[in-house]
């Protein structure tokens, strides 16, 4: 059975944050005709044609600046990273390889793809969610204590 941690549950900030993410994806597709998929946007900066880079870089700069503005105007929400450096490196490599090989991540497949009702993105989302659940299960309940 699943035990819900009601203390940690933050429905309103989660929902409001989700709506902001949705509005951003909506703005990008309706105004620029592009998918707000972060791995794809970053991958395109690394390897895509030069003429297609400006909007990608502008988007990524916006993301990088967001915490600074948030910190200046309100407060910066907690960012806790408990994984050690070797684990972080392995995780980063897997995420980089996997998102390019599978053509998308949580934003491209999970948010935009599911919003487009794309069967491809549904399969991808089920696959990465399952792998995420299994990995955390193995780390926390089989290997770790």
């Amino acid at each position: 059975m699943i035990t819900v941690d009601w203390q940690a549950f933050t429905p309103w900030s989660a929902l409001t944050g989700g709506v902001l993410i949705g509005l951003a994806a909506a703005g990008l597709v309706l105004l620029n005709g592009r998918i707000a998929g972060i791995s794809g946007i970053l991958g395109g900066v690394l390897t895509g044609p030069r003429s297609d880079r400006t909007w990608r870089i502008a988007f990524l700069v916006g993301m990088l600046v967001a915490p600074l503005i948030s910190w200046a105007l309100f407060s910066l929400p907690a960012i806790e990273i408990n994984a050690g450096i070797p684990m972080i490196i392995v995780a980063g490599l897997l995420v980089g390889l996997g998102t390019r090989y599978g053509s998308g991540c949580t934003s491209g497949h999970g948010v935009c793809g599911l919003s487009r009702v794309s069967p491809r993105s549904l399969v991808a989302t089920i696959a990465f969610m399952t792998a995420g659940f299994v990995t955390v299960y193995l780390l926390r309940h089989v290997l770790g204590g």
Partner: peptide
């Protein structure tokens, strides 16, 4: 490619808790 890539991504996501967007924000 789609399935193996996404499984690989999910494993990395579960190891550290970061996917691409949140990592850039952090």
């Amino acid at each position: 490619r789609l399935v193996v890539g996404s499984l690989t991504f999910g494993a990395g996501w579960g190891l550290a808790g970061f996917c691409p967007g949140p990592a850039l924000v952090a």
